[in-house]
Design a protein around this nucleic acid. Structure first.
Lengths: 237, 237
DNA sequence: GCTTGTAATATTGTATACATTATCCATTAT
DNA sequence: ATAATGGATAATGTATACAATATTACAAGC
């Protein structure tokens, strides 16, 4: 059951079924870029790397296909889905609509405790931005948005945004490296939080829309930069 | 490979891999209500009914779990996800946000040919509504929305809305039975189409928002009626 | 030199076998 | 009579075997 060879390694500590661990391992490898876009996923090879049989690997690949992270060609195998600029644009549009909805609902439903957590997370985000602590920036930014999604009270919305966000994460690591100053985002976050606190759903929605729109534009600019980077040609752009 | 027993039957005519046919067969059975909410899905039984082995059945169930149509409990089996009133409410909220986005984008991107198809589909919808032709009402309504999604130019948005819509379809058959007069929807559709034709994205978005909101309310009313219907207790409400 | 055909290899698709665990029913003890 | 316990049964989780198809390499012909 354990990994005996190089490559992906499983976290056996949890008590989940093996297939879930395998699924999350492969998924994480794709999102972090360990498995690169366009790369072929061969069942036997992945199974050997993780020290399991083909069965859980197959199930994982099929599920990843449904999620869009993997593309399958019948009888030919599975590939990590390459993302085009257009794909990212489509996901940004959808994400904006969903984030707007989340803010709108959060403004109607957020508890005092959640408001408190928002202020707290944004304070930490500001510290990370000042210190240029990339890991902290990403984590605290995700925290802020997570709290908003949960405050919306819509569990399915939370799951859908998270799926989208994780797929975009494949670009995001690259993105944060190239951006210099993230401190303006602290004010954007603060504005959103205030609207939510006051229950001004329409204004919260508008603030989020602007926030996503500006960061989305940044991201696309980075994408074009990546496109012209010789070392990143494996990304199908 | 063929069905030798009672129950689900496969459509062998296509050249797709068996697993895709199995997936779609089970998925369709859940959406149409042939497999009822809360019902247990036993791999051996489903496999025997369709005349295939457990492997493609397992893969299908795992994928359906990811989509939310099936709920799995480790070591205990899989069940058709029961839908609560709250689940439907969550999906309605998300669908409204996505439909608004689709209309907004369609207003910016629709071709003349697509506008023409919209008018045509709405004319047919009106005929079905007048004749109280339930199948026609559903089909033409879906056509109208489909054309809008495609006109948006966002493929991922199309896929997401369709997935949501098909899940809500589980209620929809019930819904249409109980509604008397669908003709007011013809005007609502017409208004949306006109805004799209004129490229008025904000107005198109608003019109769709209102349209979804009103039909959503209807649907929730039906749900409460279903809830009080003794024959429908298998729906976990 | 390039294309085409064919055999060898590798990979996917499906089926089945085995191990583990949950469920159910009967028996027994309180 | 009821509750608890134990075994039989059945289901899931995983691994492996086999068949069908795709890929590759190499050789023969143009």
């Amino acid at each position: 059951m354990l990994d005996e060879k190089k490559g992906l390694t499983l976290d056996i500590s949890s008590c989940k079924p093996l297939r879930e661990i395998v699924f999350e391992t492969i998924r994480c490898a794709i999102i972090t870029g360990e498995l690169q876009p366009g790369q072929r996923l061969m069942e036997v090879r992945l199974a050997e790397e993780m020290g399991v049989s083909r069965t859980p690997v197959r199930e994982s690949i099929r599920k990843l296909e449904l999620e869009g992270l993997v593309k399958m060609v019948p009888r030919r195998g599975a590939y990590v889905t390459p993302m085009s600029v257009n794909d990212l644009k489509e996901m940004m549009e959808i994400r904006r609509a969903l984030e707007e909805l989340a803010a709108e609902l959060a403004a109607m439903n957020a508890t005092e405790e959640e408001i408190e957590k928002l202020y707290d997370a944004n304070r930490r985000f500001g510290e990370s931005a000042l210190a240029n602590d990339e890991a902290g920036i990403i984590k605290n930014d995700m925290d802020i948005h997570d709290i908003i999604y949960e405050a919306s009270g819509n569990k399915k919305l939370l799951a859908m945004i998270n799926s989208l966000r994780e797929q975009m994460q494949r670009f995001r690591a690259e993105y944060v490296h190239r951006i210099e100053d993230k401190t303006p985002l602290v004010d954007q976050h603060m504005e959103i939080i205030k609207k939510i606190e006051n229950g001004e759903s329409a204004l919260a929605k508008a603030a989020v829309s602007e926030h996503i729109h500006s960061t989305g534009d940044d991201m696309l600019q980075v994408l074009y930069a990546v496109k012209n980077d010789k070392n990143k040609n494996e990304w199908a752009l």
